[in-house]
Structures are given as structure tokens and as C-alpha cells.
Computed example of a mutant assay.
Amino acid sequence: MMKEAFLKYLRFEKNCSEKTVRSYEIDLSKFEEYLKTLDSDIQLENADADVIRGWVVDLMEHGMLETSVNRKLSALRTFYKYLLRKGVISKDPVRMVKGPKRKKPLPVFVKEADMDRLLDDTSFNDDFEGVRNRLILVMFYETGVRLSELISLKDADVDTSKCVLKVTGKRNKQRYIPFGQELKELIGEYRSLRDVAVGVVEPFFVRKNGAPLYQMMVYKLVKQSLSKVVTLKKRSPHVLRHSFATAMLNNNAELQSVKELLGHESITTTEIYTHTTFEELKKEYKLAHPRA
């Protein structure tokens, strides 16, 4: 059967992993099971676009998430392209089938009052690690940098004389982010303690042994710190990036400026934060207006 030939093609010609091959096998088998409920004459090789659309609808009606449905549809797409190349079929039935659109959740962010409680009212140790940890949280919130960007900062990238960070983002694109007096003072305090504890080093953020920070370490720090002030399910560095963007827009920053600070390629990516602030506005309206 062509299904077995396709799986061998994935395994031996495309060098796909066993996990990937097994995933394709399961998806095709599930589609075969659906075909048996329709008509015994319909096989994988002669299923048309209407049949495939019906399967997509059936999966959605049984509560399958959009991402899972699209993954199964992708498996069919790869399979039928294979049949087309082999001359088994003359027309790709999946070509005109569109998967369900993924729902884009609004970004999770921490309210300004909760961030103030974390940064102003929560106690941190006054040693090297305590000052460093507070600086990490403040830097995320005041600059909107990504986790990868923060841990890759070099000491030379942090200019306190001009109050600017040189950040290397996606595809090695560099951008400059200004910062304020609070961050400047924290950076100076951290550098003094760091230079005594480990000496002058190239990475800006380091551990006690002088080695750079790693992602999971910073992730755990942020999660534990945010747990002190919020009950959000997501408590990650990216939530602080969202919080930066939301705070900027809530305080009348121009959308284009926020786009540049975040290092987004497209203004469309940044626009999602305008929906976030509007959702917050609706909540405030419902709480405050007597007839809301």
C-alpha cells in the first residue's frame, strides 16, 4: 500500500526520526478510520477535497484544538504531495483545503501596580546575587529585552554614560534601547559588587564563578519573583517583555516607538498590545461604571 511506501520514504529517504514517522503513521491511520465511516469505496488514494474538509470539521466538532487539526492536515498534505510526485494521483486534494485559524491569545502582562510592589516593596539581598537578581527584573521591565538578549549582553554593551543598551536581537540585528536613572544606579551598584566578587569579565551578567547566566536560571528567577505578587499561570521573562510594552502604550507611547524598542520586524506584531490595553480598559469600565 502507498501508506507503507510513504512511511519508508520518510524513514529512509528523508531521514525523519522514528517519532516523526510514527506521528505521520498515526495521523494517516486516523484519517483511514474516518474514511471507513463514510464509504467502503473511499481509500486514501482516492479521497477528495470535500472528504478531507469533512474530516477537519469532524475533528473540530470532537473538540480537537486548531493546532492539532492543522498538524494532522499537514501530514495529509505531505502524503498527497508524495502521491502526486509518484504519479499515483493527478491532483492534490489537500491543495484547496484550509485548516482552521489559530486563535491568538492576548499577551499576558503584569499590572503596573503589581510591578511596583515587586520592585519597590519586595526585599532582595544586598549582596552580589541579590543586587544582580533585582537588576535582571528591572532590566526586563524597563527595556523589554528578550531573555536571549539579556543573557548575551556584553559588559561593553551597557553604557551608563549615555544610558543606553546595545542589544543583539533576532538574526543578529542590533538596536539601541535607552534607560533611566533607576536602572543606571542599579547597574553601577551591580558592577561594583560583580567586579569585587568575580573580577572584570566580558559578559555583563554572570554567576559567582564568573560564568555567564543560562536561560533556565533566569527563567526560574523571574517565575519565583512574579509568584510573590501575581497569580498568573504564565510567569516568564516574556511576560515582563509584554508588561513593558503594555505599560508604554498605557502611558501614551507611540506604537512605532514601541515597535523599535521591542525589535519587531512588523508593526502588526506590536499592534497586539493595543488589544491588550483595550481589554484592560473594558475591565476598568465594567468595574467603575454603575450601569456597565
Rank of each mutant, 00 (worst) to 15 (best):
239 V>P: 04
98 K>T: 12
270 T>I: 03
40 S>T: 13
47 A>E: 05
224 Q>I: 11
74 S>R: 09
156 A>E: 14
37 T>F: 02
34 Y>Q: 09
12 F>T: 14
45 E>P: 02
291 R>A: 08
140 F>S: 01
271 E>D: 10
259 K>S: 06
242 H>P: 08
118 L>W: 03
17 S>L: 03
271 E>P: 01
99 G>W: 01
217 M>S: 13
174 Q>S: 01
119 L>V: 09
132 R>I: 07
9 Y>D: 07
32 E>Q: 10
176 Y>M: 15
111 K>V: 07
47 A>H: 02
287 L>D: 14
180 G>H: 05
91 K>Y: 12
226 L>A: 01
203 P>N: 05
287 L>M: 13
80 Y>W: 02
30 K>N: 13
14 K>D: 02
74 S>D: 03
179 F>T: 01
222 V>L: 09
91 K>H: 12
227 S>C: 09
194 R>C: 05
206 V>Y: 10
187 I>H: 01
137 L>S: 08
110 V>D: 07
265 E>L: 10
77 R>I: 02
278 F>G: 00
80 Y>I: 04
170 K>G: 00
47 A>I: 04
61 E>R: 10
71 R>Q: 05
134 R>Y: 04
248 M>D: 07
96 M>Y: 13
253 A>Q: 02
252 N>A: 14
78 T>A: 14
115 M>K: 07
161 S>M: 11
201 V>G: 02
211 A>H: 13
142 E>H: 11
287 L>Y: 12
261 L>H: 02
145 V>K: 09
18 E>R: 11
172 N>W: 10
154 K>G: 12
14 K>R: 15
152 S>E: 11
5 A>H: 14
43 Q>C: 09
281 L>C: 09
153 L>G: 04
26 I>N: 11
79 F>N: 04
85 R>V: 08
81 K>F: 08
205 F>N: 01
234 K>D: 08
83 L>H: 05
33 E>C: 11
94 V>W: 01
199 G>Q: 06
55 W>V: 01
139 M>F: 02
272 I>W: 06
128 F>W: 03
103 K>R: 14
255 L>M: 05
92 D>P: 06
187 I>T: 11
39 D>F: 07
196 V>D: 13
165 L>K: 07
64 M>L: 15
84 L>I: 04
265 E>F: 04
254 E>N: 15
289 H>L: 02
172 N>S: 14
247 A>D: 13
89 I>L: 09
139 M>H: 04
99 G>N: 07
216 M>P: 02
200 V>T: 15
114 D>M: 09
245 A>K: 05
120 D>C: 11
34 Y>H: 06
145 V>C: 15
90 S>I: 11
257 S>A: 15
139 M>R: 06
236 S>A: 06
178 P>H: 04
17 S>Y: 03
141 Y>L: 10
251 N>G: 08
76 L>G: 08
147 L>A: 07
105 P>D: 12
270 T>H: 05
232 L>P: 04
235 R>T: 10
50 D>H: 12
25 E>W: 01
277 T>K: 09
204 F>K: 10
260 E>F: 07
240 L>K: 04
158 V>P: 03
197 A>K: 15
77 R>T: 10
288 A>Q: 05
289 H>Q: 01
91 K>S: 11
250 N>S: 12
99 G>A: 06
24 Y>C: 00
14 K>M: 10
38 L>T: 09
124 F>C: 06
135 L>C: 01
62 H>T: 10
